[in-house]
């Protein structure tokens, strides 16, 4: 199963791993945006998760504790965003951008002593089962975070679509005034969604520093948060499309690396820009043309809510 010197099985197996950080960050942001909040600080929350998770994992020697630490790191940073936008009604776009800058700077400061340190390894969940040909590497050979990220997509889809909690989140994102008039606490619902988004972004960041790289360098997330934001929009706020978008991006990232390694004649610059370009192109095509998809944006997205009398 080799095409142009690239093994298809290992390609699929590694794209699933490459997609995890973006997938987690995007699914978190999807919930945030569904509740009507536009948090552009995904990149900042991811990198706080990356350093937070790295520090905890190194200190405790447990990757699990590291991931929990990463989630908490992202959630704590998102709390700043929540206080500013929900409490003080600050502009969401500006606050989100500031959050990214703040996260990048703070993580760099916190990571001072960690350059060159090795984090504890995160092993495959099913151990030797991963050695079964073809299905082994693709379905059974991954660490638990890969399965967890897919599970989270399923759970978010199910909650948004079938539960009352999901209905309330969608309602708040659709019209905060109407939701308030019916007696729902708009600020509290949005606060919880923002923190969920922060935790997911943090988890994604921790996966970068603990599994993908795995070590600490400044700016380790390298723009993954921005791609996650774009994926949410072009996926028309639909969880399974977010999965598709993340895998597409992950796939092309892996593919272009392999092509570079295989000594492809295409210049490296084009290959490195390909994941960004192709992901956005495909998702734009998917979300265009059908008015329904364009209308799927939460109507109150980006608007602050204040309960006037």
């Amino acid at each position: 199963m080799d095409i142009a010197g690239i093994n298809l099985v290992t390609l699929i197996a590694s794209l699933m791993v490459a997609a995890v950080p973006i997938l987690l960050a995007a699914i978190g942001e999807l919930v945030v945006e569904k509740s009507g909040v536009l948090n552009l600080g995904v990149e900042g929350m991811m990198i706080m998760g990356a350093i937070g998770g790295f520090m905890v994992a190194v200190a405790t020697g447990s990757p699990l504790m590291g991931f929990i630490g990463g989630a908490i790191g992202g959630a704590v940073l998102s709390l700043f965003f929540a206080v500013l936008t929900l409490g003080f009604l600050a502009n969401q776009v500006a606050t989100g951008l500031a959050l990214t800058m703040f996260g990048l700077g703070l993580s760099s400061l916190m990571g001072q002593g960690y350059n060159g340190v090795k984090p504890p390894p995160t092993g495959a969940l099913f151990g030797p089962l991963g050695d079964i040909p073809v299905i082994g590497p693709i379905l059974l050979g991954h660490d638990w975070m890969v399965y967890f990220s897919i599970l989270i997509v399923a759970v978010v889809w199910w909650v948004l679509r079938y539960t009352r909690t999901g209905l309330i989140i969608r309602a708040v994102g659709e019209s905060h005034d109407a939701a308030h008039a019916l007696g729902y606490n708009v600020a509290r619902i949005r606060l919880l969604c923002i923190m969920f988004g922060g935790a997911m972004a943090g988890l994604g960041g921790a996966y970068v520093s603990l599994v993908r790289v795995p070590q600490w360098v400044d700016g380790i997330t390298a723009g993954a948060g921005w791609i996650a934001l774009a994926i949410v929009v072009f996926a028309s706020w639909k969880p399974w499309r977010v999965l598709l978008g993340a895998y597409l991006f992950g796939g092309i990232t892996v593919l272009q690396l392999r092509l570079q390694a295989a000594g492809s004649s295409i210049p490296v610059e084009y290959l490195s820009m390909a994941p960004y370009l192709i992901t956005i192109l495909v998702l734009v095509i998917m979300s265009s043309g059908r008015s329904k998809a364009a209308l799927n944006a939460p109507a109150a997205l980006g608007q602050n809510f204040h309960a006037s009398r």
Partner: peptide
Amino acid sequence: FSLFEALNVAENVAL
């Protein structure tokens, strides 16, 4: 109206 345009009638009633 305290209604949500992008939700259906039953969902609006449920809320």
